[in-house]
Amino acid sequence: MLVQSQNKPEQQKILIVNDFFARNLRYRTDIQLWQQKDYWATPLETLGKGLGDCEDYAIAKYISLRALGVDDNKLRLIYVKAQIGGPRSNRTQAHMVLGYFVTPNAQPLILDSLITKVLPAAKRTDLSPVFSFNSQGLWANNSTKSVANPTARLSRWRRILEQTQREGVMW
C-alpha cells in the first residue's frame, strides 16, 4: 500500500491510507485487546493484531502518512470529544483522530476510526477538538534522529515513535 501510493498526490494518499486501515482493522478497546486501560500500540502491533482502538488507528495513519512523505506541519493528532449515538445523544467519549491541514490556516480533513470517510472538520459536528499535537520539536529539523535523551521516552507519544522506528518503519 505504501509503495503503491508513493508518487500519488497527497490528497489521494490520505484517502488510500484511511481506506487501508478502515478495511484492515477492526475496532477493539485496549482493555479487550491489551488488558490495559489505555495502551498505545505501534502500527506493526496494530496490523499484527488486525485490531485497534481510536489512537491506534490515528497513530498508524499518522506514521503511514509520514512514511509517505507528508509534512509533519500538515498533520496533527487531535484529542476530541466525540458525541456518540446521533446528534442528540448526550453520550460523549474521549476519542483521537488524525487531522490533515492542506494549508496551516485551513480547516483540516479528519481521518477517523469511527467512520470510514474522510470529511472536512466542519462536517464533523459530532467531534469537538480539545488538544492537538504532532512530533514537532521531538525531532531535529528534517532529521529523524531524536534530540531527546532516553529519559524523554517516558512520554507515551515519544515511546511509540521510537518503538515504531526500532521496529523498522522509517519516514
Binding site: 496533527r76 491541514f101 490556516n105 472538520a121 477538538p129 492537538s132 514537532q136 534530540v147 531527546a148
Partner: peptide
Amino acid sequence: VAPGVSQVNDGWSQFGT
C-alpha cells in the same frame, strides 16, 4: 537544552506553536 515545542489549536484550525 532543546526547547519544548507544543501545538495550540483553535477549534479545528491550527492556532500556533
